[in-house]
């Protein structure tokens, strides 16, 4: 076992790992941060997306030891300091961008990275930006709306109703 330390949501954290311990397992089992979900085993579904050093990655396909010392942000670190929902989270609630909630953490993390690189995306840019995140409930309609709204655009006018 190897002790791995990272800065997770602004706090230095450590947990014991095997070589095969994935970042997702490190966060969920090592640190008890279960908001990051595992929806597949082929790096496709995106439920496990977190930010490593500011970049969105699929935590189920990265070994914990490979990102030791990194700065990691998970869904648990996305709310405002006062505990209120952050802009992206609030947009997802406002526009009903989630139903069962299982893919939601990955959607929020991908969205926040997407908007950092492209603050006013078009509908098509949003859809392409989300292609690595699968949702079975929403048909993406309200997720796309939420992303557009989080970027400050008039999502209701842009979406069919």
């Amino acid at each position: 076992m190897t002790k791995v330390t990272m800065t997770v949501n602004g706090i230095s954290q450590s947990a014991e790992t095997e070589g095969r311990t994935l970042l997702s397992a490190y966060l969920r089992e090592g640190l008890g941060l279960t908001g990051t979900h595992i929806g597949c085993d082929t790096s496709q579904c995106g439920a496990c997306v977190v930010h490593v050093d500011g970049v969105a990655v699929k935590s189920c396909s990265i070994f914990a030891q490979d990102v030791a010392g990194s700065r990691v942000t998970t869904i648990e670190g996305m709310a405002n300091e006062d505990g209120s929902l952050g802009v992206v989270q609030q947009a997802f609630q406002d526009h009903h961008g989630l139903q069962c909630g299982f893919c939601t953490a990955g959607m929020v993390m991908t969205t926040s990275a997407l908007l950092k690189g492209n603050p006013r995306p078009t509908e098509q840019e949003v859809r392409h930006g989300l292609e690595g995140n699968i949702c079975r409930c929403t048909g993406y309609h309200n997720i796309v709306k939420a992303v557009l709204a989080a970027s400050g655009q008039d999502a209701v006018a842009m979406a069919a109703e």
């Binding site: 790096s43 995106g46 997306v49 970049v55 969105a56 990655v57 699929k58 396909s61 990265i62 991908t110 990275a113 997407l114 930006g129 292609e131 690595g132 995140n133």
Partner: peptide, 9 residues
């Protein structure tokens, strides 16, 4: 290639 998170890695 792939999707944004895959391209980051």
């Amino acid at each position: 290639i792939g999707d944004p998170a895959v391209r980051n890695r």
